[in-house]
Design a binder for these strands. Structure first.
Lengths: 182, 182
DNA sequence: ATACATGCATACTGGTTGGTATGTTATGGA
DNA sequence: TCCATAACATACCAACCAGTATGCATGTAT
């Protein structure tokens, strides 16, 4: 139940949905908190790395790569558009309350950011990305704008808002290209 | 306690922090939910309207107005930077769970968006904003990027991230200006 | 002064939560 | 085959939650 948030999702609910009993859970995890940490480390982090970092390492052009991920933003199991981004959801909820969560989630954000920045830097070396672009700054802004777009879309339930935001994101990315390169 | 979220903030806690007893609360509100609705309608909505809509109506140049609000984003009582934006916090938490919350919060977002779009349109009439800009699209993207920036900053506890995002936001806004106008 | 409603305080309740104690089954080594 | 341990299941508990019942002031109209 990553619809109602971590705190509001009761263990009994989680357990019955997963067809697991409480004994089994507490045999593997010491507390609900530990379970949450494992979800961050093994599910959310893996998803971000797969989708944004590893995929960009193979891309020939970072900007085309980012645009492609953006376009394909729908079809991923368990990542419903109307429920927002699990990484940001958890971060918003738990960061002010639990330093362990905050540190883990911050780490994921940092890996994400570094992955994009690295790809942009490679793009600069290849002459695909404008040389006056600060890769880290652009990565931060891109992630912020994307997460914000997902947040608004989650709230609005209206595709218009998200389409507008996606258009804005796409044109931001295109503005990073070296002028005249496609 | 708008640090722990609406659900996690227990009534007993809220009441003791406000030096109010349960009898007094339930004399004025029928439920915790009603109290939450009132907070949205009378505190959060008012704040957004004051800061973003009414202030832009008076501005001579919408882009300068937005930049000024952005620069002054700190000193407002009750709106701690490290706790994020109350509007977005509540929206993230409650929108998927309570349609009443969602509708109210969506309304606030819509008024915000319309306020910015209207200001941009006025700027276009005055030749301050590029005429090929879609005001609604730009307003959506700006709000999304801003909320995303606040989210990341809340999580990172690191001013660098927010500074990067603010720089991105500012340069986005400046890109909306009519070329050669200031 | 009395009657009555409004505004507030306090004590309590039924239900839910994370967590635990204890019991049962499966597994694998000797 | 036997037994120790890991893997699970079930029943229970104390703490906490939103909400309520009841009591007590205070103000006001008659």
């Amino acid at each position: 139940m990553y619809k109602s948030g971590f705190q509001a999702a009761s263990l009994d609910n989680i357990l019955s949905n997963a067809n697991v009993t409480k004994g089994a859970l507490y045999h593997h995890f010491g507390s609900k908190q530990e379970l949450g940490y494992a979800v961050v480390d093994e599910l959310i982090r893996e998803h971000i790395l797969n989708r944004w970092v590893r995929s960009l390492e193979k891309a020939e052009n970072p900007i085309d790569g980012l645009l492609a991920i953006l376009r394909a933003k729908e079809p991923h199991p368990g990542f419903d558009q109307r429920l927002g981004c699990p990484l940001n959801n958890l971060a918003q909820e738990m960061s002010p309350l639990d330093e362990g969560f905050r540190k883990r989630l911050e780490g994921v954000f940092r890996e994400w950011r570094q992955g994009i920045a690295k790809a942009l830097r490679r793009g600069q070396e290849r002459g695909q990305v404008r040389s006056d672009v600060d890769p880290l700054e652009s990565a931060d802004f891109f992630i912020a704008a994307l997460e914000g777009s997902l947040s608004l879309a989650k709230n609005a339930q209206d595709t218009d808002v998200f389409d507008n935001c996606k258009a804005g994101l796409a044109s931001y990315l295109k503005g990073l290209r070296t002028p005249g390169s496609s």
